[in-house]
């Protein structure tokens, strides 16, 4: 299973590295979101600085939609889905591999966005241990939930519009918890950030488990 996961993740990341969709489209899109927030909330740096944690995670969530859609778009063409099914790879491995590839892209994206909020919003990233732990847990959760819903919506004519409706309510707890944890880590609030990080970890475990269990059935028929 792990070997299959590495194979699939390597394949997806190679496709992204060669097609450069993630670097040329998804990352600039995330930066555009940050700039738009700046327009919406006044150039007053006080407001942007205080809201920077929430804005950061909203940008991550919206970009993750693109990453997930992209992850299943590459399986849609050239009979790639049939190839994946015929390859004899363990479905759980395929799930873990695809989720890992999405997670790797999201992690890179978060680095870009973190630099973005420091430069554009004058955010202060103190407490790096909590911030990085939050990122790790939230990224795994987002990638796992996104991959499960990605395959649910894969192959449908309306997948572009259906995926956000399905995925965003499910990952709302991630937005909430990650924002609170980041606010604590950045010294904006005095909340106990580690409690929120724990909740993120629970979310990640639940969705990785669900994905491993359900992906086989969904891949078979899609």
């Amino acid at each position: 299973m792990w070997r299959d996961a590495m194979l699939v993740a390597g394949k997806d990341l190679r496709i992204e590295a060669r097609s450069r969709v993630a670097t040329n489209q998804v990352a600039p899109f995330a930066i555009v979101i940050l700039v738009l927030f700046g327009f919406a909330l006044d150039p007053d740096r006080g407001v942007l600085g205080r809201a920077s944690a929430g804005l950061f995670w909203v940008a991550v969530l919206l970009s993750s939609l693109l990453a997930v859609q992209r992850s299943f778009a590459v399986e849609a063409g050239d009979g790639a889905a049939d190839g994946l099914r015929l390859s004899g790879l363990d479905p759980a491995g395929v799930f873990l591999g695809k989720a890992a590839a999405v997670a790797a892209q999201l992690a890179l994206l978060q680095v870009v966005l973190a630099i973005g909020i420091v430069v554009l919003y004058d955010a202060d990233l103190g407490g790096p241990v909590l911030l990085v732990a939050t990122c790790a847990a939230a990224t795994v959760g987002l990638a796992a939930a996104g991959t499960v819903y990605g395959v649910l919506a894969a192959g449908l004519k309306v997948r572009e519009t259906l995926l956000p409706l399905l995925l965003l309510p499910v990952v709302a707890p991630v937005l909430l918890s990650a924002t609170r944890a980041w606010e604590a880590g950045m010294g904006i609030s005095v909340d106990d950030g580690w409690r929120w990080a724990q909740l993120l970890a629970v979310f990640a475990v639940v969705y990785v488990t669900l994905g491993v269990l359900a992906f086989g059935a969904l891949l078979e028929e899609s």
Partner: peptide, 21 residues
């Protein structure tokens, strides 16, 4: 059916997160 189970699995997490919120 899978979507329903995923949604239901999310309910306790939503509950805790907003309860702490």
């Amino acid at each position: 059916a899978v979507a329903a189970l995923i949604a239901v699995a999310d309910v306790p997490i939503v509950h805790f997160s907003v309860d702490w919120w």
